[in-house]
Design a protein around this nucleic acid. Structure first.
Lengths: 296, 296
DNA sequence: AAAATCCATACCAATATGATATGGATAGCA
DNA sequence: TGCTATCCATATCATATTGGTATGGATTTT
C-alpha cells in the first residue's frame, strides 16, 4: 500500500472505472490496472468488482476509500505544517532579556516587530540577568538571550553584537550632585554607593571592576542590590548613588537622575544576542535576522 | 513523502544515525542518505542536522517523526481491518427468514453456528415472508434470504436449494379430524378453511393453488390470515383448519395438531437461500458455505 | 450482428531505487 | 598534534519498479 496507489485508487473510485481514472491521473489504462492489482495483492483482499461498465467497490474497498482520502488529506496537511515549521512561521522561541533592556527602544521594537511578522510563533520572554541567561541557554531552557558579555563567548554558544552600552552615574533627584555634577570619579570617593552582586552578571561585574581598578577608584559601598530595578528604587529612596548601565536612562525612573561621566562612558559594555551554537532553528534564525536588521 | 521514506526516517531517528539505520533496514548507507535527501526535498524542509557522530532532529523533523510513526501504525491497522473485512471475519449481514423457518432446527443451528464462528459479524435477522424478502433483496435492503421459491429465480438473484418442504393439514386439537384423520382432500370438501394472501408469498401460494387445481380440490375458505403464525393461532382458537408448510410442525403449537396427507406430501415446496447475483461479499460467502454444509 | 466500452495480458521503455567504491569532515585517543 | 574510527556525501553502475503500446476477450448498446 503506497501513497501513489491510494491516489490511483481514489481516482478509480471517484470516476467509477479504471479507464476514466487513467485519464484523470494521466497514465495508461493497463498501468493503472496493474497498480490496482498490486494494491489488492499487497493488502491481501479484493477492493474492486470488475464489470463491463466499470468497477464497483467491495465492502473492503469502501472502507479503504474513506481511509485513503483521509490519509492523502493528512499527507498534504503534514507537508504544510512542516513547511510552516521549516520556514519559522510557526513554532516556539524562548527568549531571555535583562530587565534593563526591556526598556531599550530597539529591544522593544524588535519584539513587537517579530510578533507582528510571525504571529504564529509563541514568543516566550523571560526576564533574567546575563548570568542566569547563559546558564539556561546552555541547559536548553532558553533559545536565545539578550545579555552583556565580552568577546569570549563560552564554547557551545554563538553570539552577535547588538549594541555597545556604557555606564552612567545614577543619583537621587534630591542629591546635591544634580546641581553640581562631579567631574571625575575621585570626586565621589566619600559618597555612599549601592553595589550589585557578581553572580547575577559576572561578566558585567568583572568588566566594571576591572575598569575601576585601572582608574584606581574604589567606591564606598554601603548597600547591595540584586538587580538594576532594585538598585534604582534604592537610589530613588535616597539610600545612595550607583553606577548603572546607560540603557537604564532609556526608561526614566522617578526620583533618579542620570549623570554622564567621561570615565564611565569609556567603560565598554557590549550587549549581545546569544544562542546555542549549531542549533539554529528556523524560528531562531528569523529572530536573529530581524535583530541584526533592527540594530543596524 | 512515501511510506518507504517514512519507514527509513523513523529508523534513522530511532537509531540516531543514517549508518546505523541503514543496517537496520538492510539497505546500503548511501541509498539511505539519498532517500533522506529526497524526503527533505519533497517536503521542502530540512529534517536532520548532520553531525560527525550521527544526525539530530530539527524541529520539523521532530514533528514528522511523531506523524510518521502514527501513519505507519495506521497503515498496518488498515491492512488488518481490510483483511478481516475481505475474509468475512468482520462486517454486516442482513438476513431475511420466514417466521415459520426460524423454528426449523437446521435454520436455528445455522444461525447459532454462524454467530459462533464469526462473532465479529453483525448478523441482522429480519422475519419476512418470501415475497417481501425477494423485494428487499433486489432493493439491497437484505443481503440474503431464506424463502420459498420455484426453480425460476428472478434475474439478478442467485439461490441455492436448502430443503424440500411439503404441506400438512393443521387442525384444532379439539377437532374430530384428530381422532379420525381424513384420507384424501375430498374428505375435507365441507370443512371450513383458513387461507393465506397471495401477495406475501406469491410463489408458495401459486404452487399450492396449482397443486390443488391438479387434484381438483377447492377448499371452502371462511377466513384469511396474514402469515403462518396468525393462521396457526386461528386454528388453535377453533376458527377452522388450514394447509401449512410441514416446517410448522417443527415447533409444536398448543391447540393445534398436524396431519400428514399423501396428497399434501407430494406438493413440493423448495426452500432456498437467495442473494443478489454477482455481489457476494466475503461475509455472505461464508454464510452461504456454512448453510450448504449444514443442509448437506 | 456490429460497434463501442471496459478490463486484462504481453512486452518494451523509462524511471526510481539500491549497491559499491570513494572522499571529506569530525570526534576521540594516543 | 597527528592518527584512527566513524559518519555522511557523491559518483557510478545494476536492478527493480513503474508506465507505455499493442492487442485480445467479455459485455452492453445500437
Amino acid at each position: 500500500m503506497e501513497f501513489r496507489q491510494l491516489e490511483y485508487f481514489v481516482a478509480v473510485v471517484e470516476t467509477g472505472s479504471i479507464s476514466a481514472a487513467s485519464r484523470r491521473v494521466h497514465i495508461a489504462q493497463p498501468a493503472l490496472t496493474r497498480q490496482m492489482q498490486l494494491l489488492e495483492e499487497g493488502l491481501g483482499t479484493p477492493l474492486l468488482d470488475r464489470h463491463a461498465r466499470g468497477v464497483r467497490l467491495t465492502v473492503a474497498g469502501r472502507m479503504l476509500y474513506s481511509e485513503a482520502t483521509r490519509l492523502l488529506d493528512e499527507r498534504v496537511d503534514i507537508k504544510a505544517r512542516l513547511l510552516a515549521l521549516g520556514s519559522g512561521q510557526t513554532g516556539k522561541l524562548s527568549l531571555g532579556v535583562t530587565v534593563t533592556h526591556l526598556w531599550v527602544p530597539e529591544v522593544a521594537k524588535l519584539m513587537r516587530g517579530y510578533r507582528e511578522r510571525y504571529p504564529q510563533v509563541a514568543l516566550d520572554v523571560f526576564t533574567l540577568l546575563s548570568g542566569p541567561q547563559l546558564e539556561k541557554l546552555q541547559q536548553g531552557g532558553l533559545d536565545a538571550g539578550i545579555l552583556y558579555h565580552d568577546d569570549h563567548v563560552p564554547s557551545g554558544i554563538e553570539a552577535r553584537l547588538l549594541q555597545r552600552d556604557h555606564l552612567v552615574l545614577a543619583v537621587p533627584a534630591s542629591s546635591s550632585w544634580v546641581q553640581s555634577p562631579p567631574r571625575r570619579l575621585v570626586d565621589l570617593a566619600e559618597t555612599e554607593f549601592i553595589w550589585g552582586y557578581r553572580s547575577v552578571s559576572p561578566v558585567y561585574y568583572d568588566r566594571m571592576v576591572a575598569h575601576f581598578a585601572r582608574l584606581n577608584f574604589e567606591p564606598r559601598v554601603v548597600q547591595y542590590g540584586a538587580d538594576n530595578i532594585t538598585i534604582l528604587s534604592m537610589i530613588s529612596a535616597g539610600l545612595g548613588v550607583a553606577i548603572v548601565p546607560a540603557a537604564s536612562s532609556s526608561h526614566p525612573t522617578p526620583g533618579v537622575r542620570f549623570i554622564e561621566l567621561e570615565e564611565l562612558t569609556t567603560c565598554d559594555m557590549p550587549l549581545w544576542l546569544a544562542w546555542r551554537a549549531g542549533e539554529v532553528s528556523p524560528v531562531l534564525d528569523n529572530f536573529i535576522q530581524m535583530a541584526v536588521e533592527m540594530f543596524v
